[in-house]
Simulated assay, not measured.
Amino acid sequence: MLLVTTENISGKELKHIGLVKGSTIQTVHFGKDIGASFKTLIGGELTSYNEMMEEAREIATERMIDEAVRLKADAVVGVRYSTSSVMQSAAEVMAYGTAVVFK
Rank of each mutant, 00 (worst) to 15 (best):
L3Y: 04
T6N: 09
T6S: 14
E7F: 02
N8V: 11
S10I: 14
G11L: 08
G11S: 06
K12S: 06
K12D: 02
E13A: 13
K15T: 15
I17F: 04
I17N: 02
L19P: 01
K21Y: 05
G22L: 04
S23Y: 06
S23A: 06
T24Y: 07
T27C: 05
V28R: 00
F30L: 06
G31S: 11
K32P: 02
I34W: 01
A36E: 10
S37N: 06
T40G: 13
L41I: 10
G43E: 06
E45V: 14
L46G: 07
L46H: 14
T47F: 07
M52Y: 04
E54Y: 09
E55F: 10
E58W: 05
I59Y: 10
R63A: 04
R63W: 02
M64T: 12
M64A: 07
I65R: 09
D66V: 01
E67P: 00
E67T: 00
A68D: 00
V69N: 10
R70A: 00
L71D: 05
L71S: 05
K72L: 00
K72Q: 08
K72Y: 01
A73Y: 02
D74W: 05
D74P: 05
A75H: 12
A75Y: 12
V77A: 01
V79G: 03
Y81H: 08
S82F: 11
T83R: 08
S84W: 03
A90E: 10
M94N: 04
M94F: 01
A95C: 15
Y96T: 10
Y96M: 14
G97T: 10
V100Y: 01
F102E: 02
F102D: 01
F102R: 03
